[in-house]
Amino acid sequence: MEMTLSPTQQAVLDACTTALGRAAGPARARELRSAGGADDRLLTLLGEAGYLDVALDEESGPLTAVLITELAARHLALAPVGARSLVAPAVIAAEQLPEFVTIMDLAFGGPVRYAAQSEALIVLDGHDARLFTAAEYTTTAVETLFGYPLARVELQGGGVDLGAGSGDVARRWWRVAIAAEIAGTARAALDLTIDHMQGRVQFGKPLSALQALQHRVIETHVLIEGAMWMAREAAYHGAPAESSSSAAVAAVEAAGRTLFEVHQLSGSIGFTDEYDLTLSSLRLQTLRTEAGGMAAHSRALVAGRWGA
């Protein structure tokens, strides 16, 4: 057991942090919010630097991919880093990996994140999965408050069968990716909230000095930390059914708590377009619902743990 980064992992993350610092962040997220769409420029940059394929690298593996997913979310990347770096390599041959890929599960209705921007769609159908190219489905954009481009999907073609059991495999990695994305996104929202609390003086002292508020921040912080470590451990062990769903359950709970706490603690400025909070906070609502949300993650966890 070793909870610190190896020199190799540290070097990869340092370099990735630099890249994300230049190409992602609040200004870019704000720009994309105005323009609509997703950050295919960032995805290309990360892909060319090899960050999206680290799961396939023997030394780095999925653990490094989950760290990158978490990091990208923390930098407000508006691109399917988790789907591409964690889920797709688990079910698609390395030489056929599309650059921009997203996921939907036929078991659940509702709009799909990045569907209109993707060049391919992994469609989960029970235990199995199929890969659809963009030519094999149509999309209808859905207006949303919640931070990501969403669209309803209508499948046209038959897609390519990804093999028996591929749906189960993809679903497990999807949960790990969601947990990592929530951990990174929630951390960004909480960090900004702490900055606000340290600078905002009321009753003669900063909000960060008020014990009643401190406790809420700390409880939220601990929920996020727990989810983050659970995602990392699940990735390291190859996304087992139990621990991947457990990570997702913890993350969804952390997301729910974070979303409302950061807005409560930030006050009215937190709702405004001029302030950065909604660039992270509102995404949490989308991530909470993905892959069937709490109900589906809970079913998977109970099945994985107690065989129900």
Binding site: S245, S246, A247, V249, A250, M294, S298, R299, L301, R305
Partner: peptide
């Protein structure tokens, strides 16, 4: 959901 939340 009760069991899952507690396990997590």
């Amino acid at each position: 959901e009760t069991l899952a939340s507690a396990r997590a």
